[in-house]
Computed example of a mutant assay.
Amino acid sequence: MKHLSMHVYGLVQGVGFRYSTLQVAIESDVTGTVENEMDGSVKIEAEGEEMKLYSFLTKIRQSPSPFAKVKTVDYSFSDNLENYKKFRVIG
């Protein structure tokens, strides 16, 4: 199990990005959270098997919402787990 932290930049607020991310997380079998940030980015915390997290990251980079435009994704992996029970949208 790994922890993946992401900040997604671009047109990612007000376009259904968080709820599309929720769907991708469920399909990818990862747990965690997604929330809007004050700077217009979206913060994602995800946990799961490493290969599932890489698949999740790839799908997020491709923009899960048809109305969003992902420009940049900053991310990092760690071994520090929060042990999320499910994936949820905050806010």
Score class of each variant (00 low, 15 high):
89 V>F: 06
79 D>R: 10
59 K>R: 15
24 V>S: 02
35 E>H: 05
54 Y>E: 14
26 I>A: 11
78 S>L: 08
86 K>V: 15
47 E>C: 09
52 K>V: 03
71 K>Y: 09
75 Y>F: 14
42 V>K: 01
70 V>D: 02
19 Y>E: 12
55 S>K: 15
24 V>Y: 01
58 T>I: 12
18 R>N: 06
80 N>W: 06
6 M>E: 04
87 F>M: 03
16 G>N: 05
11 L>C: 09
63 S>I: 04
10 G>R: 03
58 T>C: 11
75 Y>D: 04
20 S>Q: 05
82 E>P: 00
70 V>K: 03
35 E>P: 00
77 F>M: 08
43 K>E: 03
12 V>Q: 02
31 T>A: 14
21 T>K: 02
56 F>P: 00
46 A>L: 04
70 V>R: 01
89 V>E: 10
8 V>L: 08
39 D>Q: 07
29 D>F: 14
10 G>F: 02
56 F>I: 09
45 E>Y: 03
10 G>S: 05
63 S>A: 14
71 K>C: 08
18 R>V: 04
42 V>Y: 01
84 Y>C: 05
80 N>I: 15
76 S>Q: 12
51 M>N: 15
16 G>W: 06
34 V>P: 00
73 V>S: 02
85 K>G: 06
85 K>W: 02
29 D>T: 13
57 L>A: 07
3 H>K: 11
68 A>V: 04
32 G>E: 01
1 M>I: 10
24 V>D: 00
78 S>T: 09
84 Y>A: 07
